[in-house]
Design a binder for these strands. Structure first.
Lengths: 344, 344
DNA sequence: ATAGAGTACGAAAGCGCTTTCGTAAGCGCT
DNA sequence: AGCGCTTACGAAAGCGCTTTCGTACTCTAT
């Protein structure tokens, strides 16, 4: 009989159902070796009593851990919080819990967080955010993840693809191309790029797309200002100031993510430079506030919540032999921050 | 000796240090009954080997669970993601893990998430977001939390104060007063309020502050339009449209949070109504993008990350007998979205 | 020297579950 | 009737830790 004031245990359910502990466990886990009749009875009793398994005991005993570890650069960056939102949604449906860890955009720290999550025995690991150029760190992360998978862990990454695991990746290059084409189509030729943290693969990919679009028009990135700072609003401000100072005749600024674009816009406003009349601005990601900026931001939409959902869904499905890759759609969303290049 | 390819266990550390399992446990937990010398040796070995305790085993054995459950309305709302960011920061310092659950602004669901977290044996529960007027739900949540605390759980809430537990609360009423005073000082008299979800205590408190400020000038909220929708950008849009339709002569709109203010601004922009020349707009919270909107938003700053940090710190400290309450500062940040009331 | 108190440590129980192993019952076959 | 095989279940081990209890040892007071 359930002890008063105590947590409901599996034995309590088993007793009520008139079966042994082992049978009850099997029945609730859906494992075979239990007759349909008995299994139904156990499930019924469990539901009636409102039984919830103790995840600690379950995991300790060797069952799969039901918690998902999600590593993001920084949760208060909308790009990541929107991804997290999708992950949490699926997790709630599946009865999983989501643990969030910050990597703070630092490869070393990301590795540390990863190891910590593994040590903490999470069952599924999701890593969101760009990969790094740093081969050593990526290599260590890769082997750490491989070991984790060998031990039965599930892994998926979001927005990167260099770790030898299942990945949900936007086509950053195609997005970059779309932006380049859009601006070129509007007559822009003196285009500057506010690029994010150097060393991030995302930066390289998006940049490559822009370069590809330019080369179609006989232009090259080499001749254009590409200012690296980092993927934040302040980074955007820094980049914008440098661009305005060294290349005041630019007619368009491509920010490699929306956070930077917001920073760029704020500098332009402060300087009284009208957007898009004198300067066009493009972002990347389409975080939800992008549509509500003034001027509203032209950007490449990535379905962040959907990416989060896909990643967890992917990780949940039995692993195939080779890493799977799920591309995500992307759409150039043209809003008010871009317009025809001003006449000379 | 550590088995190859296996997780490092406490016994491994104990053996290497030449002590028993019990002593090793005590040493690492900082419990007494171990000589300084032995304790140092154990800690030393533990560090060398890179030992991380298995949290499942630890919790199962009766130790305090090292995971923090954080319930937010919606993680992709900047207000909450900024709070979460603060919580995660402290958690990382303390070696705790943070589990995030969505309540989706629904009292019933919040209760469900709460129960789930408790069933999942988290050690600390943090609930962020407004309380609800619904007495039944609040009562159930309160008794659930009380039971959780009796069982040794730690609890703190952020931005609400009706659950009989430690709370980190902004002075919403004073914030409302500051807004009211600011607008009145600018000469506004026909002020409309875009209020959030009815039934949230936050809405009532902020509204009360505004009312208090008005009454000092012989005005009353009764005579003014207060439009309820919900605490989102879309909610702000709906409210703004209704205000413009029914009270086109308003000269200022108070949005009870920044998300709504962003929605309000987007409608005003779409209608070509200049801010602040024809209409002033105020928000509440000062989410980080507020400063970068155009026009930049006048709002009441709440230190969200700090609130998250305080809440976890509070929960971590030994409980006092009575619920503690930590007020958070708030500052009226005057930016470009408010200006003198237009002449009649 | 000896009793009593205190200190430092080890042995072992137990947290709630999963899983392995053992066994009884039921089946078809010779 | 006797054999092996399968199926449905229970007993018990064990996951890695914390904590209780017991014991050897040291110290102080008589």
């Amino acid at each position: 009989m359930p002890r008063p004031g105590a947590r409901l245990r599996l034995v309590d359910v088993a007793e009520r159902a008139g079966v042994s502990l082992a049978t009850a466990s099997r029945a609730l886990a859906g494992r075979e070796g239990v007759s349909e009749e008995v299994a139904d009875r156990v499930r019924q009793v469990s539901r009636e009593l409102g039984y919830v398994a103790n995840p600690y005991a379950r995991t300790l005993a060797g069952g799969a851990s039901s918690t998902v570890g999600l590593i993001v650069h920084q949760i208060d960056d909308p790009y990541f919080s929107e991804i997290a939102s999708g992950v949490i949604e699926v997790a709630a449906e599946e009865g999983l819990l989501v643990q969030i860890a910050h990597s703070g955009r630092d490869p070393e720290n990301e590795l540390r967080q990863l190891r910590h999550l593994i040590a903490q025995q999470v069952g599924i690991i999701l890593i969101a955010g760009s990969g790094y150029d740093d081969q050593r760190v990526e290599g260590e992360a890769r082997s750490e993840l491989a070991a984790f998978q060998r031990a039965g862990g599930r892994v998926a990454v979001i927005g990167r693809h260099a770790l030898g695991v299942d990945a949900v990746v936007p086509d950053n290059e195609a997005g970059g191309r779309a932006i380049g084409a859009h601006l070129l189509g509007l007559g822009h030729r003196r285009i500057a790029v506010a690029a994010g943290t150097p060393g991030l693969t995302t930066v390289a990919d998006r940049l490559a797309g822009v370069a590809a679009a330019l080369s179609g028009h006989g232009l090259s990135l080499d001749g254009l200002p590409v200012v690296h700072s980092d993927f934040t609003r302040d980074g955007g401000r820094v980049a914008a100031e440098r661009i305005l100072h060294h290349h005041p005749d630019s007619t368009a600024i491509i920010a490699l993510n929306d956070a930077m674009a917001i920073g760029v816009l704020s500098i332009l406003r402060a300087r009284g430079i009208p957007v898009p009349e004198r300067m066009s601005v493009v972002g990347f990601d389409d975080v939800s506030v992008a549509a509500d900026l003034a001027p509203s931001l032209t950007t490449v939409r990535l379905p962040m919540p959907e990416m989060g959902r896909m990643a967890l869904t992917l990780a949940l499905k039995p692993r195939s032999t080779r890493p799977r890759r799920r591309p995500t759609g992307h759409t150039l969303v043209v809003r008010d921050s871009t317009g025809p290049a001003p006449a000379r």
